[in-house]
Design a protein around this nucleic acid. Structure first.
Lengths: 204, 204
DNA sequence: ATCCCGACTGTACTGCGGGTCCAGTTGACC
DNA sequence: GGTCAACTGGACCCGCAGTACAGTCGGGAT
């Protein structure tokens, strides 16, 4: 029986679904404990307050996102060894993934927490920061690899270009949420992809 | 004496500053009335609830943003009549503007509300939607003008390209908030600008 | 068999913030 | 002198976060 998912994870699952759907503040502990079929006391046994819950959720989410990127670009690398084409394939896969999510993408917890800021303690904010810095590093590395093979047509700040991956995804998700459309994020990624094609058109 | 700013506007000013700094939920009516030096009753005389306040704030914000874009691209047009260069100059001005805001940019209320969604009623959400659709239309129009003079090197969805302006700004602001850096949004805009330069490099 | 402990349940209570109701004041204009 | 809009002030309800703690229950370790 997999009903033996431990309570802590069950809380996190319920909470994550609720938070992604309607935001952190709008999710009450009451409804989380109802969904997880535990008592309020049980909740506070696992998390000392809502902030601790937020931190745990963020950690899980960031780990999952990182694993996803690892997997995505590993698969892309198998398909093509050239760093540019690997990036292009990876972004295509990412765009497809975002499009295939039927409910629309859950929506990035990062942006959500970034805009509710003062609700959270320093620990949560720092997690957020570190996640984005991690992605910056990851993508900057990939772009530098590309730049060793392809001469960029225009000079670009590699840190900023690395950030642009996160930024385009985040921005796309904001649009998607606000517009109630379903493929804005994937379209934005595809546009970013053509940017890269134009930028790194010429082999050295 | 300009202290005769009417109470309603005073409430909106105080509220906007507080909301941009720490988010809507984290801003209590208590502190708004304290800041505006009125009573709680006075607040509810002007706004029937927090939702009404949100709607009024969004309306003001969107109007201001639209006026800003009008002004920015009008100035750009004066400097250069070519639609591409006008766009490029406008984006540069926008980037500079974002950079010059000492506290970092207030941060777009749009994203903030998009991610808190269920806190707000349909009216607020619709305002949000209409604003983004407005910007889509605005920028798509400008890009179509450009495409009449310049042959895009790659086929792009013009709606999506229009959205990309909003998306890049929103995304940049998310990064900026989360990272506590100050020029991410302007850097992202500058990168988007080089994208446009590459995309519309060849005159027809 | 017992005891201990981790994982809870249940209840009672505090405090804050949103929101309602309403009676009363104040100043401007007619 | 009366009317009205723009408030003040206070009493009150509710939901929700968070605290506190006493008690339960099942599964090892001894």
């Amino acid at each position: 029986m997999d009903q033996k998912v431990d309570t802590r994870s069950r809380i996190l699952n319920i909470a994550e679904a609720a938070v992604l759907e309607k935001g952190f503040e709008a999710t009450s502990i009451e409804e989380i404990v109802a969904g997880a079929e535990i008592s309020r006391g049980g909740f506070f046994y696992h998390f000392k307050d809502k902030n601790a819950l937020a931190r745990a959720m963020l950690e899980r989410y960031i780990d999952a996102e990182n694993a996803l990127y690892d997997d995505l670009f590993a698969r892309a690398r198998e398909l093509n060894d050239d760093p540019l084409h690997c990036m292009l394939i990876g972004l295509k896969l990412l765009a497809e993934m975002l499009e295939e999510m039927p409910t629309g993408h859950p929506g990035c917890v990062i942006a959500s927490t970034a805009y509710q800021d003062r609700l959270f303690d320093e620990g949560v904010r720092d997690l957020n920061r570190q996640a984005i810095l991690g992605w910056r590093k990851r993508f900057r590395g990939m772009f530098e690899e590309i730049a060793q093979v392809y001469e960029p047509r225009e000079a670009v700040n590699m840190d900023a270009l690395g950030d642009m991956v996160s930024g385009v995804v985040e921005g796309g998700l904001v649009l998607q949420r606000a517009l109630r459309e379903h493929n804005n994020a994937s379209e934005q990624i595809m546009l970013f992809r053509t940017y890269l094609k134009l930028l790194f058109a010429d082999k050295k």
